[in-house]
């Protein structure tokens, strides 16, 4: 009997549209573009800080433009998505075994959410 296997090719550019879980994955992955851009905004601010008070108020002025506000809003939504998507998979990547049993995943995730709240509060008090 002859064998002639049929190969179904996957589209290299549109594969992720085929399933909701692939779309969620791509949404998680593209958060890096926003984090990259935002980090360069921070570097820009740091440069202004190094260049003196006038340069820094120029930086603040640009930040206050509609584009600056819109950009910060977009990054806020995207980075919150990044944080949640990162914390929910932490128990899979770093399980903790105590004695015989593994610590339930939701305890590890909730501990991360708790620490996230504390860190965020410290930053907000520092920066507002």
């Amino acid at each position: 009997m002859s064998s002639k296997p049929y190969v179904r090719e996957m589209s290299k550019t549109t594969w992720f549209l085929s399933q909701p879980r692939y779309k969620r994955y791509m949404a998680r992955e593209v958060t890096c573009i926003f984090i990259f851009a935002y980090t360069f905004l921070l570097i820009w601010g740091l440069g202004a800080l190094a260049n003196g008070p006038e340069a820094f108020s120029g930086f603040l002025e640009s930040l206050r433009s509609p584009l600056g506000v819109l950009f910060n809003l977009a990054v806020l939504i995207v980075t919150v998505y990044h944080s949640i998507s990162w914390f929910v998979v932490t128990p899979q990547a770093m399980p903790i075994q105590r004695g015989e049993e593994f610590v339930p995943g939701n305890i590890i995730v909730n501990a991360h959410y708790g620490a996230w709240a504390v860190v965020s509060l410290i930053i907000l008090i520092w920066g507002m």
């Binding site: 603040l60 930040l63 600056g68 990054v75 806020l76 980075t79 990044h82 860190v119 930053i123 920066g127």
Partner: peptide, 21 residues
């Protein structure tokens, strides 16, 4: 990924508030 998950949203809030005055 871990550091940004913890600090970036709050940092963005700080710059957003600065942007909004």
């Amino acid at each position: 990924g871990t550091v940004t998950a913890f600090v970036t949203p709050a940092l963005v809030l700080v710059t957003l508030f600065a942007a909004l005055g």
